[in-house]
Simulated scan of single mutants.
Amino acid sequence: MSSRVCPLSLFVYDPVVRSKKVIKLVPEYLLKKRKAYQAIKATQAKLALLEKRKVCRGKLLKFKRLEDFLKDSHKSHRDETRIARSEKRPPAPLPPAKNRLAFAVRIREIKGVSPKVMKVIQMLRLRQIFSGAFVKINKTSMAMMKMVEPYVAWGFPNLKSVRELVLKRGQTRVGRKRVPLTDNTFIEQHMGKHGIICLEDLIYEIYSVGKGFRAANNFLLPFKLSVARHAARDKAGLLKDLGNPGFRGTDINSIIRQLN
């Protein structure tokens, strides 16, 4: 009787042998490299989070020298003295009845001005330099122009200047977005109750200072006027070309041509 051995019986299952796993060794320089890379990434993420929090809070803090505080204090004191002296003087006479519309452009910086001047600047909606807005001429507006005279140039625009400003830079706000005035249907939808159904009606209402002037002027956002890049770098030359602030009469039209 021949004895045969089954080939399957040669393989014996050993759980100890199967449970052992081979662990690959990593060189030490690679471990150090990974650790350094993870530390860099963690630092970058922390800096990005801090920058995001700063942006959410508002403007970044800027270092201010003592000389800047003194300059702002002198400017504020000078404004208050100028306003107090102007109040003692007799008020300036109103312009002729035909000049009922004025256009004001801010051509000077207002850092460090007195609170009264800052409040008038905000009421005129001239928060940014080289921004302009229409103003209805009356005793109150004349007094306001007198207060901001060193920083704002103003005068009487003609119909051509009003039309060019509204057609080229006329915008309104819908929610938080600035929307250019290019659709008469949109204008009729928002200003139809004031009798303004198209862009030409809006221009005529502004220029003629009609009954709906206040609504039409509030519908228009302040005009963001442009300055050439080389002119913005050469501030002395730019201010020389624009001239002095204050009342400019009909010369305001040349400033509008230059900045529009």
Rank of each mutant, 00 (worst) to 15 (best):
V135D: 11
K146W: 06
R169L: 04
V117K: 12
T172G: 12
L199A: 11
K136I: 00
K193S: 07
I187Y: 03
G192W: 09
Y204C: 05
I137H: 13
N158S: 08
F134C: 03
V135T: 07
H194W: 10
K139Q: 14
M191N: 02
R163M: 07
L167T: 03
R178D: 11
V135P: 01
E149G: 14
R125M: 06
Q171R: 04
V174A: 15
L126R: 03
E188N: 08
F186Y: 08
G175N: 03
L181A: 13
T172V: 03
Q128C: 10
C198H: 04
M145F: 05
K193T: 07
M147P: 05
L199T: 07
T185W: 08
F186I: 08
H194V: 10
F156W: 05
R173T: 04
F130S: 02
R169D: 01
L165A: 14
R125Q: 15
K177W: 09
I197D: 01
K116T: 10
I196F: 02
F134S: 09
T185V: 15
C198N: 12
M123W: 11
Y204K: 12
N138F: 04
G155C: 07
T185F: 08
C198Y: 10
S161R: 06
L181P: 00
R163V: 04
K119D: 12
L167K: 13
P157K: 14
H190V: 00
I196A: 02
R163Y: 09
M144K: 15
V152D: 07
L124Q: 07
F186T: 12
E205R: 13
R178L: 04
K168D: 13
G132D: 01
L124A: 10
R125C: 05
M147H: 14
V162F: 09
I197M: 07
V166H: 13
R127K: 15
G155A: 14
G192R: 05
N158H: 02
R127T: 03
H190F: 03
V148N: 09
A133W: 01
F130K: 00
K116S: 12
L165M: 03
N184C: 07
E149F: 14
K116R: 14
T140P: 03
P150T: 10
M191T: 06
K160T: 00
T182G: 06
E205N: 09
G170K: 08
Q189E: 07
F134Q: 06
I196R: 02
R125V: 00
L181F: 01
F130G: 00
N138E: 08
L167Y: 11
Y151T: 04
V120A: 09
K146H: 15
N158G: 07
L165Y: 06
Q122C: 11
E200Q: 11
S161V: 00
Y151F: 06
E205H: 10
N184V: 04
V135F: 11
E188S: 13
K116E: 15
P115T: 03
V179I: 13
I187N: 00
L181W: 02
P180G: 01
E200F: 08
